[in-house]
């Protein structure tokens, strides 16, 4: 009998343990609520039924659109395509200002980005058993069981809101910047 269609006895045992965990674990309760409402959680999707493939191609359009925006407002492609080795730090620095200012504006306009952990880098942090493994990466002397205590090396970044522009049907996103001809 597979894990996804348990027996009556197994289901009764599950009922009791789930009952207790719903009361004690708010996050788990939320996931059950989602499941009950008919919305499978992202985690359950990723683990997948037999129909969904385990890996899929990333959809290129959003990537192309973002590259186009970073080029248009921040000249990112121009900057990366140029040979930095041929110039002095001052020259590279001057161009980097253009890239920094423009790309920063693009990010601020289209995403809300915040740190995953609110603590300062270098602080001691403790991770409870149910911490989100995709949001926190454990490194170094990785042994034992949760709770884990360690030093925060990088605060992480999380996008909380995406506001990418709408794109006209038929617009060729592969053109990151059109060639420009002045008459």
């Amino acid at each position: 009998m597979s894990e996804s269609t348990p027996s009556v006895f197994r289901r009764f045992a599950l009922l009791l343990s789930v009952f207790r965990r719903i009361l004690t674990d708010a996050r788990f309760a939320g996931q059950v609520a989602e499941l009950h409402a008919g919305r499978a959680t992202a985690a359950s999707d990723a683990r997948g039924g037999k129909e969904t493939p385990r890996l899929r191609e990333a959809e290129p359009n959003a990537g192309l659109q973002l590259l186009g925006l970073l080029q248009r407002d921040g000249r990112l492609i121009d900057f990366l395509e140029e040979d930095v080795g041929a110039y002095s730090d001052a020259e590279v620095g001057a161009a980097a200002r253009v890239v920094h200012e423009g790309c920063k504006e693009t990010l601020a306009q289209h995403f809300t980005i915040e740190a995953v952990r609110a603590e300062s880098e270098g602080d001691r942090v403790t991770l409870a058993a149910d911490f989100d493994v995709s949001a926190v990466r454990l490194t170094g002397n990785l042994v034992g069981q949760a709770p884990f205590t360690g030093s925060l090396v990088h605060r992480g970044w999380r996008v909380t809101e995406t506001r990418l522009p709408q794109v006209a049907t038929g617009h060729d996103l592969r053109i990151l910047a059109p060639a420009e001809v002045e008459l």
Binding site: D78, E82, A90, V92, A94, A95, R97, V98, V99
Partner: peptide, 15 residues
Amino acid sequence: VVPSRGTRLIRRSLR
């Protein structure tokens, strides 16, 4: 910085 109009951002920008 006045960025270059062409692709040569580092060489042609005016600082």
